[in-house]
């Protein structure tokens, strides 16, 4: 058992024992290799089911929306920023939460690892920075840092920004020469190339809405794509409707997206939907100097007005 798992179980179990929270939300072991299942513990014994590894990639903040109980929650850097968002947007109050922070060294890109093999993965073992992956035919030892998810590779906040406990000493934050290389690559294209890039990106979309539903920001009681009166978007497989869904969903996350990557993790078709939201992360940073979810004291730029807000787009 790794030290993170041990510490998470210990902290969660104590919280429940001392009655400080009603339940703890964390990750439990999955039933297939490279899967973890979000789960709850209501008793100290149940807390023994919690695990931690590089597959705990979903964002548990998703489970906090409008909850009434007192909750313990496990949070990586990005998740902690989503929790800040949730508090600012009044979806949960700070007093209801006991945040068990996890200094994170990144989550792995499962599809990239699967791509290394012809057959299916039967075993995944993480040992520090090295991962051993086995299939029926072969076994490979890979460097975890080489197989991180896209958002983990450009992450600047691996340590939780808000927490009541930490499961380990903070990790060293990454220094990146250019965190927005991916966005700039798309920006450099001409209009038609951009259009085709996204057309190709979305070509496999089945509109299961896993990206939306895995997103902690998408908590609207009725999403605009589901609205029937008036109906904003067609519900079939027309590419225009698919594009409209992705574009507008992304825009609703402007200034709020912490680039936690849950959308891409959840996508069954391996669509890199962050190509939309990353642009908004970059613009928020460059236009307003804003990174979402770093502080409880400031409202996100798109829900406030300041006379000094840049307005050079108005002609």
């Amino acid at each position: 058992m790794n030290t993170y798992t041990k510490k998470i179980r210990e902290l969660a179990s104590n919280l429940l024992k001392e009655g400080k929270v009603d339940l703890v939300i964390g990750f439990k072991e999955g039933t297939v290799p490279m899967a973890t299942a979000p789960g709850i513990a209501r008793t100290p014994e149940e807390a023994d089911g919690f695990v931690w590894d590089a597959n705990c990639s979903l964002n548990l903040t998703n489970y906090l929306t409008n909850k009434k109980e007192k909750i313990g929650i496990i949070a990586k850097g990005c998740d902690s920023r989503s929790i800040v968002n949730h508090i600012i947007e009044n979806k949960i109050s700070r007093d209801q939460l006991h945040i068990i922070g996890v200094p994170c060294t990144g989550m792995v890109d499962k599809n990239k690892i699967r791509g290394l093999f012809e057959d299916e993965i039967t075993e995944f073992k993480e040992e520090g920075d090295v991962i051993r992956v086995k299939t029926g035919a072969k076994e490979l030892t890979i460097d975890k840092q080489e197989y991180l998810r896209g958002n983990c590779r450009t992450c600047m906040h691996r340590n939780p920004v808000i927490h009541d406990d930490l499961v380990a000493e903070p990790v060293v934050e990454q220094k990146l020469a250019d965190p927005f290389k991916d966005v700039k690559a798309i920006e450099a294209m001409d209009a038609d190339e951009k259009w085709n890039h996204f057309e190709n990106l979305l070509s496999g979309c089945i509109r299961c809405y896993a990206c939306r539903n895995a997103c902690p920001l998408c908590y609207c009681p009725t999403c605009f794509v589901d609205e029937a009166n008036p109906q904003w978007v067609g519900k079939g497989q027309d590419p225009t409707d698919i594009r409209t869904f992705h574009f507008l969903r992304a825009y609703h996350c402007a200034g709020r997206c912490t680039d936690c990557g849950a959308c891409e993790d959840a996508c069954p078709m391996d669509i890199k939907v962050r190509d939309f939201t990353r642009k908004l992360v970059k613009d928020s940073f460059e236009i307003y100097g804003w990174e979402a979810g770093l502080t409880l004291d400031q409202r996100p730029p798109l829900d406030t007005f300041k006379p000094e807000d840049p307005d050079d787009f108005i002609k």
Binding site: A191, R243, F247, F276, K315
Partner: peptide
């Protein structure tokens, strides 16, 4: 900006 990013020409939208 996001419309432009996904391939709608900048000059089609004016504020």
């Amino acid at each position: 900006n996001l419309l432009e990013h996904m391939g709608i020409e900048k000059d089609r939208l004016h504020f």
